[in-house]
Design a protein around this nucleic acid. Structure first.
Ligand SMILES: [Zn+2]
Ligand SMILES: [Zn+2]
Ligand SMILES: [Zn+2]
Ligand SMILES: [Zn+2]
Ligand SMILES: [Zn+2]
Ligand SMILES: [Zn+2]
Length: 598
DNA sequence: GAGTTTGAAACT
DNA sequence: CAGTTTCAAACTC
């Protein structure tokens, strides 16, 4: 096998290294039963063949999966398979025994992943279908049945390109192409691949470039210039304040009510990165105050808002009003001092890093609420691009159809305005603040945490053990590509994730505190010496149900059904034999897991 | 740069 | 809530 041939195997390589398999040579070979001839040709009863995958450094307990033999097709079954797989299928070998039954699908398949009791099938198109056990039963029946009308039920089952395999035949020098059966990513290649470098860049104010002066660009609204001082860098910058919508009665659908005297104007300060603070002035609290809606309810529209750069944490108005910030425990909050020439009163300010604009209960005394939409948590966590997109390196979006007012838009999802983006018909700017607010409300309605950091969590404990709040749902990436939000954030998948064939498991990324050094070497600790607490939270590296394994298993079962059909085995017996085949597959998988002490 | 793949978000 | 569609980014060539 040429290690360089298939670049689709790269992830496997990375994975195997991470799983401490780097030092093992894993061999995949076709083993021929002793009592069978060593040839695989012809229409005769083919030998029992297995694909054996065994780490050479471990004991002799190779995992055996049924194999895949290339050869001539058999009309009825291959026709069925063809329908099933959505492509020509050649089934060559008809195994003499149940154990030897094999099928081959021409160019490799991407079939399905089974997790727990569900099986996910990927159609040639692109869709993943999950079938319940009951449906799986149907599938089996169908596979063994000759009646075509059943076939429609499994139209989704298909083969897929890409997974090429070269099976080294024991006797022959020829190569067989077939499905790559990959037990938990074990690969024959012995390649050292360094794990991705993890950058845990804490948000360091000093590392940031000094805030630049902000040019005041009056929009449709009244604009005022404000000096903003970064409390850490002591640097000042100008910000613009936009007095947006005129005072209005404020209604909140969530039951929160704002009966308003004329509320103060809306304040908006936009920072250079599009991050923003909202300042909702509730100075006339006795007149205009709102009842915080139910946690789930939509938030009242901020009466005033200030949008400013995340770096600039002080807002300075000509005549000072000092606002004390209350610091929320988990979100990054800053003392904010607002000096205004409009009012000489002192006011309290609640500063919350509420990217979601959620309505935090306001204490009655607070007179001004500052809402900050800055994506600070993410930066702090070093999640995703965090840490380095910090200083204005925010990635521009390229939205075409969402108007940047849906969460599809990264800018919008981060609570930022679009700036220097490549979007079309962008509404995510000051000029469309009303629409924007509406969109925000809509999002919050759907998901109150929509604008919260996806990675951090709310307890201190979870902050240490970073994990994706919702978890990912990856089906085909093995959580080893940036499609996966966990992987993208450089964190291991957790119990929150519902991914199939996950390889982004514990140990893939260095644990936060202690593990820093070892992971670079690619040597994975066994979970015995890992932090047990962490072990519970992170996804364990014991996921043997990779798509390939599942596929192989399914193939075996289908082959079994096929054999029975061809031998006119009674229906009930067929069913039983298929189940037995399934059992054998499971046993082999379990066997493998035991022999590979993860 | 075009085309494909992917999984989150949105929608029904 | 599940199934489907839409979307923009990630990825591949
Ligand atoms: Zn956008
Ligand atoms: Zn944008
Ligand atoms: Zn935009
Ligand atoms: Zn994932
Ligand atoms: Zn995950
Ligand atoms: Zn995962």
């Amino acid at each position: 096998m040429d290690p360089s041939d298939d670049n689709s195997n790269i992830e496997e390589l990375i994975y195997s290294e991470e799983e401490d398999l780097a030092m093992e040579t894993v061999e995949m070979e076709e083993s021929i039963d002793e009592d069978s001839p060593g040839t695989i040709t012809g229409d005769l009863l083919p030998p029992k063949s297995f694909v054996t995958i065994k780490p050479t450094t471990s004991q002799n307990h190779p995992v055996q999966l049924k194999t895949i033999i290339a050869g001539k097709g058999q009309p009825s079954v291959s026709a069925q398979m063809q329908k099933l797989m959505g492509r020509p299928v050649t089934i060559v070998s008809k195994a003499g025994s149940v154990q030897g039954s094999t099928i081959s699908v021409g160019s490799g398949t991407k079939v399905a992943t089974a997790v727990s009791h569900k099986i996910a099938l990927q159609t040639p198109g692109k869709k993943i279908i999950t079938i319940s056990p009951a449906q799986a039963q149907q599938l089996k029946l169908m596979a063994s049945s000759a009646s075509p009308q059943h076939l429609t039920k499994v139209k989704g089952l298909s083969s897929s390109p890409g997974q090429k395999i070269i099976v080294k035949s024991a006797g022959a020098s020829g190569k067989l192409s077939g499905t790559f059966i990959d037990m938990a990513g074990v690969s024959k290649h012995q390649v050292m691949v360094n794990p991705p470098t993890i950058l845990n860049v804490a948000a360091s104010p000093s590392a940031r470039p000094p805030p630049a002066l902000k040019q005041v660009t009056p929009g449709m609204n009244k604009v005022q210039v404000v000096r903003v001082i970064n409390p850490k860098t002591k640097q000042e910058t100008l910000q613009k304040i936009v007095f947006a919508s005129p005072p209005k009665m404020i209604k909140t659908e969530g039951g929160g009510v704002v009966t308003a005297g004329p509320p103060p104007p809306k304040l908006v300060i936009q920072g250079k990165n599009g991050q923003c603070f909202y300042v909702a002035s509730t100075a006339k609290a006795n007149v205009a105050k709102y009842t915080p809606p139910s946690p789930r309810g939509p938030n009242p529209k901020p009466v005033s808002k200030i949008v400013l750069d995340k770096d600039k944490l002080k807002v300075v108005f000509p005549e000072p009003t000092i606002l004390n910030a209350s610091v929320s425990s988990t979100s990054k909050s800053f003392p904010v001092h607002v000096f205004t020439n409009k009012s000489s009163k002192h006011a309290s300010t609640t500063v919350t890093n509420v990217r979601n604009f959620s309505c935090k209960p306001l204490s009655a005394e607070k007179k001004v609420e500052v809402r900050e939409r800055v994506n600070i948590d993410k930066l702090l966590e070093g999640g995703g691009l965090g840490g380095d997109d910090d200083s204005g390196k925010r990635r521009p979006c390229n939205c075409n159809r969402s108007q940047c007012l849906k969460l599809y838009c990264e800018c919008f999802a981060n609570g930022e305005f679009c700036k220097d983006c490549n979007c079309k018909e962008c509404f995510n700017d000051l000029a469309h603040e009303d629409e924007r607010q509406k969109a925000i409300r809509l999002c919050l309605d759907r998901n109150p945490n929509a604008f919260r950091p996806k990675i951090g969590k709310f307890s201190a404990e979870d902050a240490i053990r970073r994990q994706h709040n919702k978890g990912c749902n990856c089906k085909r990436s093995g959580c080893l590509k940036n499609y996966c939000e966990c992987y993208e954030a450089k964190i291991s998948c957790s119990s929150n994730c519902k991914c199939f064939g996950c390889r982004n498991v514990e140990g893939y990324f260095p644990a936060n505190a202690e593990d820093s050094g070892s992971s670079i070497s690619g040597v994975k600790r066994s979970h015995s010496d890992a932090d047990p607490q962490q072990a519970t939270a992170r996804k364990q590296a014991c996921n043997f149900m990779t798509p390939d394994v599942v596929e192989a298993s399914i193939q075996c079962m289908i082959a079994q059904a096929d054999d029975c059909q061809k031998s006119s085995v009674p229906f009930l017996l067929t069913e039983k034999m298929i189940l037995e085949e399934f059992g054998r597959c499971l046993a082999e998988i379990i066997d493998f897991s035991f022999n590979n002490d993860y």
